[in-house]
């Protein structure tokens, strides 16, 4: 499954929040809500197929992919569209590796290179990294309650405790029923908006509500937006552990 930064939660994993059992949650604190989101975003394993549609000043570009995930840290994405066929991104142990069919070596992305755009989309490689435990990097506060697209939400603000995160401030609109992050605003410490995501549609998988289509906008790119669509998702399936190893990246 396509997996991007947990901390900002506009990854596919982040969007696959499990439908929460109906219970009286009104008394939940901001920390409890964030922990709930974190716990619901984690799958033992998953397999997904999806599409990334990027619209920019030049027009529209479509890429397709298949993705495997294991837990919160490991994921493998393989692109299947013609222009990128065979390219893979492996995330394991907090590191990101790129495989290109015509390159003799794996490329380990780090530092400033992580800020590069993924396939020209509004998603950066940096968005695909990050820690599992949001509360270890951010202080959470419940700003209030509101609604987004007619759904009741918690409005959570996250303020970074450390400088190592990509987005020092976040504002999340969390569906009270499903704990899907319906809208996220990601900003600098001074409040300048860097990215925003919105869930366009959801789907039901094994009794869970999953975001099936999400729009991501990098506000630093003019006239650009990216839609990520999950066409197929299977969770808690058998996935060969070697899929997530560097040795097997080139198969």
């Amino acid at each position: 499954m396509f997996k991007i930064n947990r901390s900002i939660r506009f990854t596919a994993v982040a969007l696959f929040a499990i439908l929460c059992p109906i219970s009286p949650l009104f008394s939940m604190s901001a920390e409890q809500i964030v922990q709930k989101i974190d716990s619901l975003e984690t799958f033992d394993t998953s397999y997904s197929e999806g599409t990334i549609i990027t619209t920019d000043r030049y027009g529209q570009k479509t890429s397709t992919f298949i993705a495997y995930t294991r837990g919160a840290y490991d994921s493998l994405i393989e692109f299947t569209s013609v222009a990128e066929r065979g390219q893979k991104i492996l995330r394991t142990s907090g590191e990101l590796f790129l495989f290109y069919p015509d390159a003799n070596e794996l490329i380990r992305l780090q530092g400033a290179a992580l800020r590069q755009s993924l396939l020209g989309s509004d998603i950066s490689y940096e968005d695909m990294t990050g820690e599992k435990d949001t509360l270890s990097d951010y202080d959470a506060a419940l700003e209030g309650e509101g609604s987004f697209n007619g759904k009741d939400c918690y409005i959570i603000s996250l303020t970074a405790k450390t400088r190592k995160v990509a987005y020092p401030r976040q504002t999340l609109y969390v569906d009270k029923e499903t704990f899907v992050v319906l809208r996220g605003e990601y900003s600098t410490s001074s409040g300048r908006l860097l990215k925003e995501i919105e869930v366009i549609s959801t789907m039901e998988v094994d009794g869970r509500t999953i975001a099936s289509e999400t729009q991501i906008v990098d506000t630093l790119k003019r006239d650009s937006s990216t839609r990520m669509i999950i066409d197929e998702l299977n969770i808690d399936i058998d996935v060969d552990p070697s899929v997530f190893s560097l040795d097997n990246l080139t198969w």
């Binding site: 390219q87 003799n104 490329i107 396939l119």
Partner: peptide, 18 residues
């Protein structure tokens, strides 16, 4: 010597070649 080069493609994606 060989070196791996990365660039943006005409499909506005990325590619690398050694």
């Amino acid at each position: 010597d060989s070196v791996t080069v990365m660039s943006t493609t005409s499909a506005r994606g990325t590619n690398a070649i050694t």
